[in-house]
Amino acid sequence: MLRVKSTLGCLLLALAVACGGGGGGNPPPPPPTTATALAYTDPVSTGYRLLRNATLSTPSRLVLDLVGPSGLNGQGLAFILTADPAKVSWVQPPSATGLVQNLAFDPGGASQVLTGADKGGGALHGAVFRKAGAVPLGQPLARISLTLKANAVPANTPVGITLTEGNTLSDTGTVLPLTLATGTLVAK
């Protein structure tokens, strides 16, 4: 009981000084903080986009669903995403068996073509296809996930997540470049 009393007394003192402001020399610097959470702001886009899965995400684990444009059908897509490896790591989405989870292209089926690999340097190579046949693209097509590296990132540090390259296979068999809208990611 005695020690609790003492600690509480100092804290109250410090608050009083800070609030008092003004005169009397430089204020002490704020204590250093490291990020403990990833804050992601979804992009504003109707094309291919990465949206935060609020259900599956936690403060330290960000789960992103790659959603396609509505009104179109496609056979699949491939992408190379890059994120700063000093700050975040590609991890398996919950319940997935790899770094990329197929959500629409015959997931788990015989015609599924799925791959996801961390090729180093923060590059995630992922692909989700059907061997044949297209599906509507206006739905979550693939899922990826990142975690913040512990004790490595100062709080409020932006973390870039960019599409290096990607393509899609349309329902007509055309290979098109992938344009993917990503949101803002900050380590908090």
């Binding site: 056979q75 699949g76 491939a78 992408f79 190379i80 073509v113 061997k131 044949a132 393509n167 296979l169």
Partner: peptide, 19 residues
């Protein structure tokens, strides 16, 4: 298959196009 100088997932779409 996409002749971009690298063999990676981007070749899959080119493959599956012909699958």
């Amino acid at each position: 298959l996409n002749a971009d100088g690298a063999v990676n997932v981007l070749d899959l779409a080119w493959f599956l196009k012909r699958y």
